[in-house]
Simulated scan of single mutants.
Amino acid sequence: MGVRKKERAEQIKEAKKSLAFAKLNNCPTSPRKMRLVADLVRGQKVEKALQILKFSNKEASRRVEKLVLSAISNWQEKNEDASIEDADLFIKEIRVDGGSMLKRLRPAPQGRAHRIRKRSNHVTVVLGAKDNTQSK
């Protein structure tokens, strides 16, 4: 059992080396608000996604825009010889997971206290390149 797990873990590690991704941990925005922005750009081409994020009014879109730019630069590091325009990059996967929660107390009437949960999230962006060799 241990050998199979180790081999599978190494396969996953090798597959991740070829992917271009970026992660943002403990972003102080609620996951629900961040998912609204993530749903706008999921599956879009990178150029179109950046335009959508640039002209969106939501604060979370600024953070996602910066994250997508980071993923693009990570892709460029792995593929120095290829250009972005020829690669036809798109957002293959964008995931928003709940992060740690800060718990605070707010005074309430009659000596009581209500708990306030300040949520945070983790965002992961994975880029994919469409293969033009198959279509030719």
Results as ranks from 00 to 15, higher is better:
Glu59Gln: 11
Phe55Arg: 01
Lys103Val: 07
Arg95Met: 09
Lys92Glu: 15
Glu85Tyr: 12
Glu93Val: 05
Leu19Phe: 13
Arg32Met: 13
Glu93Cys: 02
Leu24Lys: 14
Cys27Tyr: 15
Arg95Ser: 12
Leu19Met: 13
Ala82Cys: 10
Ser100Gly: 08
Arg117Leu: 15
Arg106Ser: 06
Lys48Leu: 12
Glu7Val: 03
Pro109Asn: 08
Gln76Asn: 09
Arg8Trp: 15
Glu59Leu: 03
Phe55Asn: 02
Asn79Pro: 05
Ala20Pro: 01
Ile91Ala: 06
Leu89Phe: 04
Pro28His: 05
Lys13Cys: 00
Arg42Lys: 13
Lys45Pro: 01
Cys27Asp: 04
Leu50Asn: 03
Leu127Arg: 03
Ser73Asn: 14
Ala82Arg: 15
Ala108Pro: 04
Glu10Thr: 01
His114Leu: 09
Lys23Trp: 11
Ala108Gln: 11
Arg119Pro: 02
Val68Asp: 01
Leu69Met: 12
Lys103Phe: 04
Asp86Phe: 11
Met101Glu: 13
Asn57Gly: 05
Gly111Met: 10
Ile84Lys: 07
Lys118Ile: 01
Phe55Cys: 01
Asn121His: 12
Asn26Phe: 12
Gln44Ala: 15
Pro31Gly: 03
Gly98Leu: 08
Ile84Tyr: 13
Ser83Met: 11
Lys13Gln: 12
Arg62Val: 15
Leu19Lys: 11
Leu53Met: 03
Arg8Asn: 10
Val41Gly: 06
Ser100Met: 02
Lys16Val: 06
Val126Thr: 06
Ile12Met: 08
Lys5Val: 07
Lys92Gln: 10
Asp86Pro: 02
Thr124Leu: 06
Arg32Gly: 01
Phe55Lys: 01
Arg63Cys: 12
Leu67Gln: 05
Asn79Leu: 14
Asp39Trp: 03
Phe21Arg: 09
Arg117Pro: 00
Lys103Cys: 02
Val46Pro: 02
Lys48Thr: 00
Pro31Lys: 04
Leu36Val: 05
Phe21Leu: 14
Asn25Asp: 15
Lys66Pro: 00
Phe21Ala: 12
Val68Leu: 11
Ile116Phe: 15
Arg104Thr: 03
Leu19Tyr: 10
Ala113Gln: 07
Phe55His: 05
Glu80His: 09
Lys92Thr: 01
Gln44Arg: 11
Asp97Val: 00
Gly43Thr: 00
Ser83Trp: 12
Arg104Leu: 10
Ala9Thr: 01
Phe55Pro: 00
Val123Met: 02
Pro28Met: 01
Lys103Ser: 04
Ala22Glu: 05
Gln44Glu: 14
Leu102Arg: 14
Leu53Gln: 07
